[in-house]
């Protein structure tokens, strides 16, 4: 479903701040794969997701989604294939617009925006049903401005928006990192349900090793801009945090492990 071939990406090339973020990164995801991504700060996790989403172009390499070469497509055109939830709860929704308006915008992802009504009565009823699934009571606040919602509610809403129009690929960039543990668990739970229900091909970055092990059918670890550990199937199910740390030090050739990863 997703194929990354030898991706290179350097930021601020030729300056003192030069940073090679992706180094010959290759990754292939099958239809229905739920891949969790872990790695230290600066390992290139977010850069990989943003490169797939088209936030910036890559220096070399190829990106294919469902066989279509999207390497040179602008972000808004790739959105046709991709649903995204960001780390920052403010980023995925339009705060000054209503809940139902945000949903209506998302429902038209990948379609041309015409002079037809921006939202119809039938849609409103459908969204109400969809919001009920989230279990946050948002179905009673359809015309409330999204800016009034809490971070957790906004992330749950963004998740619904990302999947309202079934995406070929769902990208989750530490989408629970900014939430308190209780809310994070709820949003993760909702994520799991939605991914399973629609059998979505999902790429989820997390800084929490336990979550990385608990969710998905495949786990990859990134280091210095490429994949160093790739575990799936039965092997992943039996994985422990300790084993994961060992795998990491073997792969990276050092036993320095990011503090954040151990703590979480």
């Amino acid at each position: 479903m997703l194929k990354l071939e030898n991706i290179w990406k350097t930021f601020n090339a030729g300056t003192i701040n030069e940073k090679v973020a992706l180094q010959n990164l290759s990754l292939t995801m099958e239809e229905g794969d739920f891949v969790t991504v872990i790695g230290g700060n600066g390992a290139g996790k977010s850069t990989m997701l943003n490169a797939v989403a088209g936030v910036f172009g890559v220096d070399s390499g190829k990106i294919l989604i469902d066989g279509v070469d999207v390497t040179n497509l602008p972000e808004y055109k790739r959105a046709k294939y991709i649903g995204r939830v960001f780390q920052d709860p403010m980023m995925g929704t339009a705060a000054t617009m209503q809940i139902e308006e945000n949903l209506a915008l998302a429902a038209r992802r990948g379609q041309s925006r015409t002079l037809r009504a921006g939202i119809t009565r039938a849609e409103r009823e459908a969204y109400m049903e969809q919001l009920k699934i989230l279990g946050l009571g948002l179905e009673n606040r359809m015309t409330a401005k999204v800016g009034l919602l809490s971070g957790g509610q906004r992330q749950a809403l963004t998740l619904l928006m990302a999947t309202l129009q079934r995406p070929k690929l769902l990208l989750l960039d530490e989408h629970t990192a900014a939430l308190d543990p209780k809310t994070a668990a709820k949003v993760l739970d909702a994520t799991q349900r939605i991914v399973e229900k629609d059998n979505l091909t999902t790429l989820m970055i997390t800084h929490n090793m336990r979550d990385a092990i608990a969710y998905g059918n495949r786990l990859i670890m990134m280091y210095e801009g490429h994949v160093v550990v790739d575990v799936s199937g039965e092997e992943k199910k039996k994985l422990t945090v300790e084993q994961l740390l060992n795998l990491f030090s073997q792969a990276s050739g050092s036993d320095e492990v990011d503090d954040k990863m151990v703590l979480s």
């Binding site: 055109k77 995204r84 980023m91 995925g92 339009a94 000054t96 998302a106 038209r108």
Partner: peptide
């Protein structure tokens, strides 16, 4: 309102 969100929604 939010250009990032807009682009992510294919706008």
């Amino acid at each position: 309102a939010n250009p990032n969100m807009a682009r992510a929604q294919g706008i």
